[in-house]
């Protein structure tokens, strides 16, 4: 077997292993997009900064999709008076934590790695939000 065939076979094997998970993640993302609207997300915020930061991180973690959507929603949150810290927590968690993708990440990179990484990212989304708030004078 020449090196091209060998490389092609190895690539195909790698993609084939993760494909079922990716199909599942895409189907679940489609479902989330169908049911979770912008208004629905906005309804969770309480105008209490600390609580909203956790809610921001939590909702950012479970939602999936294009980061632009998180920018738009965060912009609306700030306009509606939710505050810069929850909005930052929301954006940061949206792009760094992936509950929907978690099964695929666990399959590809190992359960402990995926869970540890997502927990760390969740916690850091709150810390980043607080630091951003302090720097920008949102506290």
């Amino acid at each position: 077997m020449n090196k091209y065939t060998k490389s092609l076979k190895k690539t195909a094997r790698g993609l084939k292993n993760i494909l079922p998970m990716i199909i599942g993640v895409i189907l679940l993302t489609g479902l989330i997009k169908q049911f979770i609207t912008e208004r629905f997300i906005q309804s969770f915020f309480t105008q209490i900064t600390v609580l909203d930061s956790v809610i921001g991180s939590f909702s950012g973690s479970i939602l999936a999709g294009n980061p632009v959507t998180s920018y738009i929603l965060a912009g609306e949150m700030v306009k509606n008076g939710t505050g810069i810290i929850p909005a930052t927590a929301f954006i940061t968690a949206w792009v760094t934590v992936g509950i929907v993708q978690l099964p695929a990440e666990m399959e590809a990179l190992g359960t402990r790695f995926a869970i540890t990484r997502n927990i760390l990212s969740f916690v850091s989304s709150i810390i980043i939000a607080i630091i951003t708030g302090i720097i920008l004078g949102g506290v």
Binding site: G14, N17, I18, I22, Q101, E105, L109, R117, L120
Partner: peptide, 22 residues
């Protein structure tokens, strides 16, 4: 992110550390 998992998985198998992947 999920389209990168196969490549990262392969790199991890090749010995790339968890720190660099994270």
């Amino acid at each position: 992110i999920y389209v990168w998992y196969p490549l990262l998985s392969q790199m991890k198998e090749s010995g790339v550390s968890n720190s660099l992947i994270s």
